[in-house]
Amino acid sequence: MHRNLARPVGIAIIVGLIGVLLTLPLFPSPSTTYFMGLILQVMLFVYLAQAWNLAGGLAGLFSLGHSAYFGIGAYAYAVGVAKYGLPPLACFAIGLFLSAVLAVITGLISTRLSGMFFAMVTLGLNEILLNLASQLTWLTKGDAGTYLRKQFTISFTTAYWVFFGLCIAAFVLMALIRHSKLGTLCVAIKENEAFSRAIGVNTGLWKIVILLISAAMVSIGGGFFAMYQGIVAPTMVFSFSISIKMLIVTMIGGMGTVFGPLAGAVLIVFDELVRAWLGSSFGGVSLVAYGTILVICVLFLPKGIMERLRPASREASS
């Protein structure tokens, strides 16, 4: 009788959450702004994590270098408008094109390497881009960063709405893909690549397709991130910690699940609050706390929060 209870509860939570996110900006005050700022951070990483989840969670392409697409998107926009005076849309197009090139290369590599080796290659590709961004100073202005004048930036509130929209789009896209032929193929590839190939699935092609979608999402996110920050420096975007955050959020939430990245966002909130609470008085304590909570999560929820919620609802129904 309670078999489907989890579903309505889940829907209610989502609707409530969207409601809160929509109404929060209607009550402007400094503390609302703080919460919106916190939510913006969360939305940014939930969006990126969802993009990572498409390739990493669904298709098992365990990338440690997704920040490469983020950086390409951010730099395409920043360098495009600031150095070459291109219209923003053209910059996004360039970012998407370059990310697509990298995604195809990475996809081709994934047909030859898997697991740890694939992860290491993606890490290496990101490292190459990080170094190029800081060494090709004629293009990027190196570590001083590419500065964006006010007309090329968006305000905090605009950024809030942009990432709100991107998040909704990402979840819809994930839900659609998850239940489409592409999603089924990806899961098949993840579960048993050799078998998928044996029954005639062109695994290389589908891996590239899912990577392209994932890369495009991250690249767009990078472009808007640049707009919002108003400056792009190599370590802000091509950073290992950004790649890691994408996968941490996904894994804590539940790999390959539609709402995993949303559940995993708890961790970002926790990180933010710990730093706020302890950061200034004891330098290292926030790191220790964050690390501890990560280890605890892994020990008790090795397959993610979503995995825990599901059996619980099944227990309730029996």
Binding site: S239, S241, E272, G279
Partner: peptide, 23 residues
């Protein structure tokens, strides 16, 4: 003095918002 940890460039603004929320 109210001093908070930025840790990396991407956290600066969030930290500033927190301080502004305290007036």
């Amino acid at each position: 003095p109210v001093i908070v940890d930025a840790q990396n460039p991407n956290n600066q603004v969030a930290e500033a918002q927190r301080l502004m929320a305290q007036g």
